[in-house]
Amino acid sequence: MQEDIYKVRIENIFEGPMDLLVHLIKKHEMDIYDIPIALITEQYLKYLEWMKSINIDIAGDFILMASTLTKIKSKMLLPIHGEEDDDEDPRLEIVKPLEEYLRIRSAADELASRNLLGEDTFVRNPHQENLSVDQDDEIIKVGLFELIDAFQKILEKISVQRGVNIFTADTISVRDRIAQLIEIFETKKSVTFNDLFYNNVDKSEVVVTFLAILEMVRLSLITIVQNTQTGIIRLFYL
């Protein structure tokens, strides 16, 4: 067992502590529901030593796991006092995340085994990645002031149409509005600024929509451009 540790090939460099743990459990054919915690802690620490000796920087994550393992190990050594059912197996602290991680790994394998578009299966017209604007249209990136101007216009239109609504029953949060807008962008890729306000009849909704747009720009979810000829402002999903 001593020399085993040196046999590990280079491609087995582990990306994270979970990876390493899974590897050790597999290698020693342990049952994850009954992990010999002393053995795995020892193996784990040896591995860290080995990584240090070949000058791999050990990230904090690895150290954290080492301390968790050591903690569990020492807990296991302590005699249990009080009611029997009170203390759960200290190993659960590591078993639960391990289970979760293994589930994710198998899910990742499943995903990888599917017929991937652009790898296993192809379509006739692959997506055009670029913004589908006519080359002739001269466009400029819109600044905040143009946006505010456009916003003002929409507000004016509302007060003409509806007057001011004082009480509204259902209000929508900016976050929800962002989610809605994303739905629209997912299907349409690009919309004009005015289209987004087409259905907003009351002022608070218009404000929420506007704030949502600003937030989306900030998160670089969308980009906003204006046609120099028509002055139409368009929003593109990135």
Partner: peptide
């Protein structure tokens, strides 16, 4: 797909 039940390291078949 439903994530498989810990196929990799089940106690039944290591």
């Amino acid at each position: 797909p439903t994530p498989g039940e810990i196929s990799e390291l089940g106690d039944s078949a290591p």
